[in-house]
Simulated scan of single mutants.
Amino acid sequence: MSTPAEGAGEPVGPALPDVAPRLRELRRRRGLTLEAAAPRAGLSPAHLSRLETGARQPSLPMLLALARTYGTTVSELLGEMPPEREPVIRGGRAEPAEADGWTYHRAGHPGRAMQALRVEVPYGTQRELVRVHPGEEWLYVLSGRLRLTLGDATHELDPGDSAHFDSLTPHRISAVSHGGAAFLFVHTLLQSPDPHPHHPHG
């Protein structure tokens, strides 16, 4: 049975040629078999095997889930260099990465607890992909119109709109403008403390 992550229909192709062997290397370095690693990332062993051979391309939610599983960052999975001392990231210096039609531009240094990307989404892609994972996500729409589904609620965001939510809420992102959309994306594995804790005895 396919999980939601596996039903996104990633195209076969060489858009991320370096990710496949890196996924395999990280899994083996952690001492995990396909059967042990795949469920942690919400995938079947067969699907993870296809990602490791390059037969399928990982989407952003898959990269997040695999990075969490292997205790690393999306930046490392994409093959970016270790953190630099220079805090400023110059536009155009790093080549963008592409997967499942989405284009990712580095907006933060790899190896940090907070992962920052600038993402370009074509119209309608990943519309069926729903993810749930620990952490928080923040996004800010730069251009186009973005549809964000959080649980049972659907929101349409225009340029200048932003969203900040717990990743444990089932969520999906898609572009509803025909020209696609671009947004800033920040993810952290940390969860904010509940400001209204629920005590069993009131």
Rank of each mutant, 00 (worst) to 15 (best):
G7I: 13
G7H: 03
G7F: 02
G9C: 04
P11G: 14
P11F: 09
V12P: 06
P14A: 11
A15Y: 05
L16H: 08
D18Y: 06
V19I: 05
V19D: 14
A20W: 14
P21Q: 04
R22D: 11
R22V: 06
E25T: 15
E25H: 11
L26G: 01
R27F: 08
R29L: 09
R30Y: 08
L32G: 09
T33D: 07
A37S: 04
A37N: 03
A37V: 04
A38G: 04
P39C: 02
G42E: 00
L43K: 00
P45N: 11
A46L: 00
A46M: 02
H47A: 01
S49D: 01
E52G: 02
T53P: 08
Q57R: 08
Q57I: 10
S59D: 00
L60S: 02
L63M: 14
L64Y: 00
L64T: 01
L66E: 11
A67Y: 12
A67Q: 12
V74D: 06
S75T: 09
E76N: 02
L77A: 07
L77Y: 07
L77H: 09
L77T: 06
L77I: 07
P82A: 03
P82Y: 08
P83A: 05
E86K: 05
E86I: 04
P87I: 00
V88S: 05
V88I: 10
I89S: 01
I89D: 05
R93A: 15
A94N: 13
A94F: 14
E95G: 08
P96W: 08
A97N: 01
A97Y: 02
E98C: 12
A99N: 05
G101C: 07
W102V: 12
T103C: 04
Y104Q: 11
Y104M: 08
Y104W: 12
R106Q: 03
A107N: 06
G108T: 12
H109T: 03
Q115S: 14
A116H: 12
V121Q: 14
Y123G: 11
G124M: 11
R127L: 07
L129W: 04
V130G: 01
R131H: 01
P134N: 01
P134E: 09
P134W: 03
G135Q: 08
E136Q: 15
E136H: 15
E137M: 03
L139D: 05
L139T: 08
Y140H: 08
Y140Q: 06
V141W: 07
G144I: 12
R147A: 13
L148Y: 10
T149I: 03
L150D: 03
D152V: 08
D152H: 12
A153Y: 10
